[in-house]
Amino acid sequence: MEEKKITIFDVAEKAGVSKGTVDRVLHNRGEVSRKSAEKVRKAIEELNYEPNLYASLLATRKNRVIACVLPQYTPGEYWEKIHEGFKAGGELSASLNVGTAVFFYDQYDSESFREACRRMIDSKPSGVVLPPLFKNDAMEVAALLKDKEIPYVYVDTKLEDVNYFAYFGMPMYKSGYLCASLLTDRCSASQVDEVLIVRIRRDKSKQSDPTINRRAGFSDFMDANFPDAKLHTLFIDPSDPASIEATMSAFFAEHPHIAYVVMFSSRIHLIAKSLAANPCPGRRVIGFDDLEGNIDAVRQGHVSILITQHTADQSRLAVSTLTDYILMHKAPANRDCYMHMDILTRLNIENY
């Protein structure tokens, strides 16, 4: 016997509401109480009801837009890949009558972030893709989106709030733990006496610290396995290459035999020239993300390992996930959608 096709009338009956209420929930239009909306969504899930997507699109002309608040970037930077993924997701969503919009800001200026978010909120988006670089400000934005019942998806990193719709990115703590394990692989405690951690000098308000959980994972591994190792931290300014060379040269002059170097952001290539100019036999250097500059540094032997992901997939999948929810109230199978971590060396980087 053919399985009975579930209809909107079945959903209405199970939820104890009218067909019109179900229709308004499906199409995101008209006033529906939160209680009724929850009943409808529960009935849809229990009955495994699949609305006719194209009929739904034809039934309403409501403008739907997924917004992204994104740091400004120069060609070749990490955020260019995030933008490319967002645009790729937008090409598919556009065919389903869901548009996209990007609101750029200066990643070193918290006020610029707040202004971009104000413009984003004023645009009344249907969903938001949010890399939360400025923690306190991003939490305020998240609370506002929650009050307006606008679903938001974190990419790159996430905040520990309870209302985000989904997250696409590396498991940050685990990536730091993995980094420490790779850096010290097959080393005795006496071998790993000093480690250099190179960090990016960021905003003056010190809100922006996207690698904090990665550093925590790294530190926990080191504390457990190499408790006597001294961890040096050196800050560099990515806008001033000359100062990077001077800062790194001064450090290596004082610590010529330091054999373990790590950078938790995506810009290990910024110190490649300094590493080449200040060699140390057997030095291990680990960075993150498959930027072309980082890959070149691995090819040339200045960087030992890159821990990478398919960066653009974060934002591409964020857009498709929001599109599914906006059109069909379909939630992702997992709230935290962790990207797989790839380990690249000179031996396998050409095939990545």
Rank of each mutant, 00 (worst) to 15 (best):
R215F: 10
R201K: 14
A180E: 00
R201T: 09
T211G: 03
Q191Y: 11
K204E: 15
A189R: 15
I197Y: 06
E194F: 05
T211M: 09
V198T: 06
A189V: 13
C179W: 00
S181P: 00
D203P: 12
S181G: 03
D193V: 04
S181N: 02
D193P: 01
A216W: 03
F218T: 07
Q207R: 10
R215E: 14
D193H: 11
V195Q: 01
V195G: 00
C179Y: 00
R202E: 14
S188N: 09
V192M: 06
K204F: 15
R214F: 05
P210D: 05
V198R: 04
Q191T: 13
G217E: 07
K206D: 11
S208F: 12
F218E: 08
S219N: 14
R202S: 12
R186T: 08
R199D: 10
D203I: 12
L182W: 06
Q207D: 14
I212C: 07
S190V: 09
V192S: 04
Q207A: 12
K204L: 14
I212N: 04
L196G: 01
R214W: 03
S190P: 03
I212V: 11
L196H: 01
F218R: 06
V195L: 03
V198N: 02
R201Y: 07
S208Y: 11
S205E: 15
V195S: 01
D209T: 05
R201F: 06
I212D: 05
R214I: 06
S181H: 03
L183A: 00
I197R: 04
R214H: 04
D203N: 13
E194I: 01
S205C: 10
K204C: 09
V198E: 01
C187F: 09
R199I: 07
E194T: 03
A216S: 10
S188Q: 09
K206Q: 14
C179A: 10
L183R: 00
G217V: 06
T184I: 02
Q207W: 07
L182D: 02
C179R: 00
A216V: 03
R202W: 09
A216C: 05
E194G: 02
D193L: 02
I197P: 00
R201P: 03
G217D: 07
I197L: 11
R199T: 11
D193K: 11
R199N: 12
R214N: 04
Q191S: 14
D203K: 10
D209N: 11
V198C: 03
L196C: 01
S190F: 11
G217K: 04
R215T: 06
L182E: 10
